[in-house]
Design a binder for these strands. Structure first.
Length: 598
RNA sequence: GCACCCGUAGCUCAGCUGGAUAGAGUGUCGCCCUCCGAAGGCGAAGGUCAUAGGUUCGAAUCCUAUCGGGUGCGCCA
């Protein structure tokens, strides 16, 4: 179904066109002044500029200066003929203020209710989008900075899916770079697993991993620090990386253990966050595509040797800043993540023919993606796919510096989730609400509420802003928070449970609160389309928060169950059910679950 | 040095394809549970939209400069 706003834009656009003006001036928006009107159109003001700027070569309105109110008058006269409008007014310099009749609102609500998709737009129309997010690294536990990629990426995949796209999400593990060589050399020096380093042995190797996830977590920082302090160690790590990538059996076997062990831990983390991926590929997945890709680029003269490395020159003449080349092969023979990213474009286009590939990665990597995208386009690897870096801001502590725990380490995602859960359980106990619930239900509620707190706090900021990761804020349940929304939904569920069966009577609107609610519900489709267009989850957060607020006002103003007029009671219950459906849907897009009670 | 991003209420943030009185949450102060869940609702106070120019009938939004903060600039990811 088309949204109410889209329908109004069509009608007002037609009116502009009938006056010999471009249809686009009929753009209708939600009113900035809800006290004056429901919708507004500023097209008359824009039309003035258009008319006055037009050359006088026979165009109809060339000579005299156009007057916005005069234009608005003509448009208004046409709109007034349409019975759909309850009010058409001109205000200020030429704003068109519009109200729709209650009957129209009710009709739209009923149409929305009848639509299984609740008025969700079909912007995807079956096209494929690949979402690359998460991006955890092997041997490193997920830290809070992975939180944003995971939460934002997951929200986008849910949104794109809802909007009719075929979505393929890929966790794209960091499993093929220098950190692998660092780990391998560290284990070699420790001497705890010599079999993997004996050049006379080519397998088979033990099934059991020589290291646990916990061991890896301490191993990596040690290896990293050693390489930073000692150039010889770094050199050894680089050599090991090259040998791993070249296929040395012992290294491959050891590496496989790293991957397996880490993946088990990551699966748990992502599961607890409620984030799922279609593909668990990594940088290493395109290993086999790299040699032919390099040969191809060399043969076509796109790759050349520079300072000992093999690079693709991606600079352009009109670049305002220096644009370094994309390095394909390092001087000692290893490949980098730019190389794997480029090969991954080839793989994705070959396997899925996407219309769009989105990379949900920290905005500091902007330069890297610029290089990769340019190289991909130069080489013609992208096919029909549009490549886009969906960057997001960094997470800082309350002091404005990168977030650290009190102990000084990076906060782990797992700890954060536990913290949210503990806070939720405490709140339940304080309210004395969950006393009669089973322990399992209480735990389930705490999990849902804790995760809602974290996700909503993260998603409600615009994704590109660096934001302060404030523990206190992340444990707040009042105000513009995830739990507020869950609470609103839970109250509606409670009402509907108590209501028993009620006939699905047609919508009818009898009060300002109901009207406001109807207008908000009917904006869903526009919001979903806009949020997709901007890749902006915070727009969903704003929408759903406002919906809950408008509902709470309605709830405070009207008693529903005790309403004596049976038809009115049923209509209000129907409205409640519709709010619940939209609330639940948008929360689901945000990755937030609603408990049955809380 | 060059490039990009940001500077909006005490605090945390929306708004930025120019438009009417710049919004929300939080914090502060007040009011509202003998009725559907108060994790709620209503109200008040609180802003030279960093600064200075410019474009425009109209600028938080576009342009320029300055100040302040952040980020990125070849063999890490």
């Amino acid at each position: 179904m088309t949204s109410l706003r889209a329908a109004l834009t069509q009608i007002v656009g037609d009116a502009f066109e009938a006056e010999g003006l471009p249809h686009a001036f009929g753009q209708v928006q939600d009113s900035d002044r809800p006290d004056l009107a429901q919708f507004q159109c500023n097209g008359a003001l824009a039309a003035v500029k258009f008319l006055n700027g037009r050359p006088a070569d026979g165009s109809p309105a060339g000579a005299a200066k156009a007057n916005p109110r005069a234009i608005a008058d003509k448009i208004a006269a046409r709109l007034k003929a349409d019975p759909l409008f309850a009010k058409v007014e001109i205000a200020g310099p030429g704003f068109l203020n519009l109200d729709v009749t209650d009957a129209m609102l009710a009709m739209q609500l009923d149409a929305m209710r009848a639509d299984a998709r609740l008025g969700t737009p079909d912007t995807g129309a079956g096209r494929t989008v690949i979402l690359d997010f998460g991006g955890p690294n092997i041997a490193k536990p997920m830290a809070v900075h992975h939180l944003r990629s995971s939460i934002i990426g997951d929200c986008l995949q849910r949104l794109y899916r809802a909007n009719g796209w075929t979505v393929i999400s890929d966790v794209h593990l960091g499993d093929w770079g220098l950190q692998m060589g660092q780990l391998i050399t560290e284990i070699e020096l420790e001497g705890t697993a010599p079999i993997y380093f004996d050049p006379n042995i080519t397998g088979p190797y033990p099934q059991e991993s020589p290291v646990t996830m916990e061991a890896l977590e301490t191993l990596y920082p040690r290896a990293s620090a050693a390489c930073k302090a000692n150039p010889a160690r770094l050199e050894a790590a680089r050599r090991a990386t090259v040998e791993l990538q070249a296929g040395r059996p012992g290294y491959r076997a050891l590496w496989k253990h790293f991957v397996t062990v880490t993946e088990a831990g990551l699966t748990r983390e992502f599961e607890s966050l409620g984030v799922k991926f279609d593909l668990w590929n990594g940088e290493s997945s395109v290993d086999g595509l790299i040699p032919p890709m390099i040969e191809d680029l060399k043969a076509r003269g796109l790759a050349q040797t520079s300072e000992g490395a093999l690079v693709v020159d991606v600079a352009r003449e009109d670049d305002k800043k220096p644009m370094p080349p994309l390095i394909l092969v390092k001087s000692e023979g290893g490949v980098l993540y730019g190389t794997t990213d480029l090969a991954t474009v080839i793989e994705r286009v070959r396997d899925h023919a996407p219309a769009l590939i989105l990379y949900v990665v920290d905005h500091r990597q902007h330069g890297h993606f610029e290089q990769v995208f340019r190289a991909a386009h130069l080489a013609g690897f992208a096919g029909q796919a549009e490549l886009e870096h969906v960057g997001y801001g960094t997470m800082n502590g309350p002091d404005g510096k990168p977030f650290k725990t009190r102990a000084g380490g990076a906060m782990k995602l797992y700890d954060l989730i536990e913290m949210g859960k503990a806070e939720a359980e405490k709140r339940l106990a304080e309210q004395g609400i969950g006393a009669d619930y089973s322990a399992a239900e209480r735990a389930g509620i705490a999990r849902k509420v804790g995760i809602a707190t974290i996700k909503f706090a993260d998603l409600s900021n615009h994704r590109t802003t660096d934001y302060v990761f404030d523990l206190e804020r992340f444990s707040k349940f009042e105000g513009k928070t995830g739990p507020y929304l869950q609470y609103a939904a839970v109250r509606i569920q409670s009402i509907l449970r108590k209501a028993g069966t009620f006939d699905g009577v047609p919508s009818s609107l009898t009060s300002p609160e109901e009207r406001a609610l109807a207008l908000h519900l009917l904006a869903l489709g526009d919001v979903l389309a806009a949020a997709e267009d901007k890749r902006a989850p915070n727009m969903l957060c704003d929408y759903v928060f406002e919906l809950a607020q408008v509902f709470s006002r309605f709830y405070a103003a009207h008693h529903i169950l005790s309403e004596s007029d049976a038809t009115l009671r049923a209509a209000r219950l129907g409205l409640c059910a519709q709010v619940l459906a939209v609330l639940t849907k948008v929360l689901d897009l945000l990755g937030i679950e609603v408990p049955e009670r809380m």
